[in-house]
């Protein structure tokens, strides 16, 4: 994965823009679902070690929920959505039309609500990128876990085969005005995927 080093600032900017467009679409979808205004921070696109990735999100023992799925098709990779536990409960309340603070733990129903959110976010992200690039992006069935950040994230990355020192990822923060929802999105890519992605936009790597 060291070949990632060939990436120039332009390449990284393009990846950021991809994050912008995809996540913009996803944020709109989420806003429609929960009937709240959902904002997003400007995406970052960079190389991170796993330790740095954990630092961005919080402490290793922070409880998070994670929807993780593999990307197939023209651009193999991995997508991760992470919400801290309070945001997770708030999302479930919003989606189920319950008063804020009702959900205190995730039962099977809550879990499927979060998975469904992951599905919708991923679907809208991918459809925006697909439209832009003309590429075929196929998400797999999402997997779900809620536990310590360190445990969830390391397992997810290992399972996806991302065990190198540096991982290239596009990261975006999604948040709701009153901070009731705060989530991180990560798109993790591979060298071949990047080539395909860039060439679809007329860039070489």
């Amino acid at each position: 994965m060291s070949e990632h080093r060939q990436l120039t600032e332009t390449h990284l900017d393009v990846l950021k823009e991809i994050g912008n467009i995809g996540l913009g679409n996803a944020a709109t979808a989420l806003a429609t679902m929960v009937n709240k205004r959902i904002d997003m921070a400007v995406p970052q696109s960079k190389f991170l070690s796993m330790d740095e990735l954990m630092d961005i999100i919080g402490g290793l023992e922070e409880v998070v929920s994670c929807v993780s799925l593999r990307l197939e098709g023209d651009v193999p990779g991995q997508i991760l959505f992470l919400f801290n536990i309070k945001s997770t409960f708030n999302l479930v309340d919003m989606l189920m039309g319950m008063e804020q603070g009702t959900t205190q733990e995730l039962d099977e129903m809550g879990e499927s609500v979060v998975k469904e959110i992951g599905n919708v976010l991923t679907g809208s992200f991918l459809s925006a990128i697909g439209t832009m690039t003309g590429l075929n992006l196929i998400p797999t069935v999402p997997m779900f876990a809620t536990d310590m950040l360190g445990a969830v994230l390391s397992t997810s990355l290992v399972a996806g085969g991302y065990v190198e020192e540096n991982i290239l990822m596009i990261e975006t923060l999604l948040f709701e005005d009153q901070e009731q929802i705060k989530g991180h999105f990560f798109l993790i890519t591979e060298q071949d995927s990047l080539k395909t992605l860039f060439s679809s936009l007329g860039l070489t790597l």
Partner: peptide, 17 residues
């Protein structure tokens, strides 16, 4: 060595734990 994720994608999970 835990199995953290619930989901159907067994190929992906391949019980690394």
């Amino acid at each position: 060595g835990a199995q953290m994720f619930s989901g159907l994608d067994e190929k992906f999970v391949l019980n690394i734990g």
